[in-house]
Amino acid sequence: MPRTARIKSVSGYYHIVARGIARQVLFEEDADYLFFLKILKKYKEEEKFKLLAFCLMENHFHLLVQIDSGMDRVMNKISTTYAKYYNTKYERIGYLFQDRYKSKAIESGSYLLSAMRYIHNNPVKAGLCSVDQYRWSSWKYYDGVTGMVDADIVLNMLGGKSGFMEYSMYTGHDQDDGYFEFKDPSRLTDSRAQEKIRELLHMESGTKIQELDRVKRNKALRILKDGGLSIRQIERLTGITRGIVMKA
């Protein structure tokens, strides 16, 4: 079946989201977030597009950009460079990103502001922290830090920093709620994950897996991954390093 053609923005503004394939974690540690931001800055300068906002979450990322042409080329550069880095670092093979990034054309000032607020609020909606405490978003560039983000576009629309802060206080629904929703209803709490370990492996504790030989250990880890436990949960609850869990 042919892909649906993207809707081209007359204004050149887009809200872009890309996520890891099958909920694959994209950022395992601080160094991964920093590398992604490094290549984002590099390709922004090379391709000369404007970056108004970003937010890097564990298994997906959001960008708010103004780009007149070549969006597919830009996204291909970013995803290919990052996937090569990630797969080499974690001794992984195969696709890292879900088939195709999603994008929405933005044609009004109100929608542009709503998309910016939605992007910054991702950590809040995920229950991680307040917007000003999250390290991997563009919020700090609206709070006095200068650098790679073209914050003046939004700040001028809102009358400066105070207007931005007032606008960002809103906690209701934005226009992109639902369309770019990446909540995972199947994600288990740690307490439920511990129950799953007992149900699936008939072990009183995940740390018991450490006592198995390599073949049995890897089989047990695969059972837990297939059972819905995240790699980070398995690492926490079994004491087995993330690299071993990922390769199993």
Rank of each mutant, 00 (worst) to 15 (best):
Y43C: 07
K50G: 02
M116G: 09
V17D: 01
M71S: 05
F35I: 00
A193D: 05
H60D: 10
G243V: 06
D68A: 05
L155F: 08
N218W: 12
F164R: 01
T189I: 03
I7W: 00
S191I: 11
L51Q: 07
I231S: 06
I244D: 02
L64T: 12
A115F: 09
T171A: 14
E204C: 03
A115R: 04
M148D: 08
R214P: 00
Y101E: 05
K104Y: 05
F180R: 07
W139H: 13
K104V: 14
Y90S: 02
I119Q: 01
Q233M: 06
K219T: 12
K196V: 15
Y179G: 04
F54M: 03
D176C: 13
G109C: 04
G12A: 09
S108V: 04
S168M: 15
K42Q: 12
A126E: 13
Y142R: 04
K247R: 15
L63S: 09
V65K: 03
H120A: 10
L237Q: 05
T241Y: 10
G172R: 05
Q194R: 15
Y90Q: 02
T207P: 00
Q133P: 00
D213L: 09
L128R: 06
T241Q: 13
M203W: 10
Y86C: 01
A151E: 11
G178S: 11
F49K: 03
S191K: 14
L155R: 05
G160D: 10
V17H: 01
N87M: 07
Y179C: 08
Q98R: 11
V124G: 02
M165V: 15
I234Q: 04
T80A: 13
M116L: 15
G159F: 07
Y141T: 00
K50A: 12
Y170T: 03
K48Y: 01
N121K: 15
M57T: 07
F36S: 04
Y85A: 03
D177A: 08
V17R: 02
T80E: 12
L40D: 02
H15N: 09
L63R: 05
S168V: 01
L51I: 10
D99A: 10
Y167H: 11
L52W: 04
K8T: 14
I93M: 09
H60L: 09
I119G: 04
L201T: 03
S69Y: 14
T146K: 14
L37E: 06
D152Y: 09
G127P: 09
G178Y: 08
M165H: 03
I209N: 02
G172W: 08
Y179H: 11
N87H: 07
I209R: 02
S108W: 03
